[in-house]
Amino acid sequence: MLSRTANELYWMARHIERAENTARMLDITSQLALLPYRQMEPGQSWAAPWAIPLITTGIATDFYARHPVLSPENVLDFLVCDASNPSSIAACINAARESGRAVRGSISQEMYEDLNLTWLELQHYTLERVLSQGPSDFFDWVKRRSHLFRGATFGTMLRDEGYSFIRMGTFLERADNTARIVDVKYYTLLPSLDDVGGAVDYYQWSALLRSVSAFEAYRKIYRDTITPVRVAELLILREDMPRSLHACMGEMYEILKGLSDAGTREPERLAGEIHAQLHYGRTEQIFATGLHEYLMAFLDKTSQLAQEITDHFLVPVQR
């Protein structure tokens, strides 16, 4: 398959997944913002709920360059509608659709039509409409469109190399996002030790679980109160949790095993290494390392992996 085509497919999937994850992140944010948070934490404006999505994705500086004031409207504008912000939902959907258009011959017609319809419907959403309808409606729409696209992909696309690159785009982006979400709660939201286990703590953890559609799964597996250790186990180490790091990296390793030949062993090896650490990892060891440090190291490894995939498959240097 043409490298450029593989590259577009990979980024098409990454952008759709990113749009979905941004919607998830904003959804948890708007729920956390309902708590009487500021009264508990005077002066800690960096930890204000509406700063969360900016901090996790590392774009707070860009935000403040455009909006001097942190307000729900400004954050939503920046992360939903602002096409000049490459992380916004609008920009992600535009980019995904552009990629799909560039390689529409390599995806099924139903996939392209679905992507195109998402883009057409997006044109009707303005900040005013998102706000007046209630942002949750909009976030649901984004998630639904992403689900539909994945469903169309799963149900209609030939299982060829292109399919593998689409899947890799999805899982790399998803792993990245889950790691960031877990990290944020642990570092940014814990107000003080006194609050651990309290009502606010509970609400925060459950919102976090919900944002990655893991709340029901947690209940089903643990049938117990929500604790950070179990959340970390569920979202990092459980293989059967579809958005966990383990699940994502398991997929990555399987896909790369199938794609590798003599010249492309390194991406496979690296994916195998990351996967093995998750597969044989224990929560004790994660918390001994420090959750934040552990997650940062994971993000480093995955971005290395993304670079290897790019160099070996997507943007090969002329040999």
Partner: peptide, 8 residues
């Protein structure tokens, strides 16, 4: 030649 995921 064209650049492909399997080389030129």
């Amino acid at each position: 030649f064209m650049h492909t995921t399997r080389g030129p």
